[in-house]
């Protein structure tokens, strides 16, 4: 079977699939905790029916856990919903700070699996760009995957945004193993196609542990 060659479409689908799988896994974890706490409440009720006195603090612990996990699941669904809406219009005006924050939130689990933390450096003022948000998220998501491979466990990757004349830069800092990564590892063919489509450039500085995506003419 031969599939039509569309590197951008395929990369987008792969990123969408990867992200959906990761979010659904997280949701299952939250649901599993909620279910077990409901089960624990049932255990307490059975004990109480048999005349055992249950310390009210134990009920409170269960209630707090259910509340925490419900909040966690709600946040996951909100992020997934925002991500799903990134394909609403192929090109639109987006607040880059929000998009990078969403990227970080969607990538938290992938980073945690590699025992790496992600932080976003706050910007002085909001930066808005006209771009293809889903294509940009796909490119940045692939950057994150590569950045995680280029960072030792226990480290923290810092994401940042900086205006550069008429352009804007998205920075990935503290990539402690970037200098040791093979040059051909990133960008791959599909990333190069995304860079061209987004009118963007990629630059890696191994010794500085920094990767930069520059979006032209905001």
């Amino acid at each position: 079977m031969t599939l039509p060659s569309d590197p951008i479409g395929l990369a987008g689908l792969q990123y969408f699939g990867r992200t959906t799988a990761s979010v659904s896994h997280e949701l299952k974890n939250a649901l599993a905790i909620i279910k077990e706490n409901a089960g624990l409440l049932n255990d307490y009720l059975l004990l109480a029916e048999k005349g055992t006195t249950i310390d009210p603090a134990r009920y409170k612990t269960v209630a707090v856990r259910i509340e925490d996990q419900t909040r966690r699941a709600d946040q996951l669904i909100r992020n997934m919903n925002r991500f799903a809406h990134s394909v609403d219009s192929p090109v639109q005006s987006v607040v880059l700070d929000d998009l990078v924050a969403l990227l970080a939130a969607l990538s938290l689990r992938e980073a945690a699996m590699r025992q790496v933390a992600l932080t976003v450096r706050p910007t002085q003022s909001t930066i808005t760009v006209t771009t293809a948000p889903f294509a940009l998220l796909t490119l940045l998501g692939n950057c994150i995957t590569f950045a995680l491979a280029a960072t030792q466990p226990g480290q923290t990757i810092t994401l940042g945004i900086a205006p550069e004349g008429h352009d804007v830069q998205i920075l990935f800092d503290s990539l402690t193993g970037l200098a040791d990564m093979p040059g051909e590892a990133f960008p791959k063919e599909s990333d190069k196609a995304l860079l061209t489509a987004l009118n963007a450039r990629f630059k890696a500085d191994g010794p500085a542990g920094r990767m930069v995506i520059t979006l032209s003419g905001r």
Partner: peptide, 12 residues
């Protein structure tokens, strides 16, 4: 690795 899960499952 989910500490809340560990805690509630252990108790049950």
């Amino acid at each position: 690795d989910e500490k809340d899960f560990l805690s509630v499952m252990s108790e049950r």
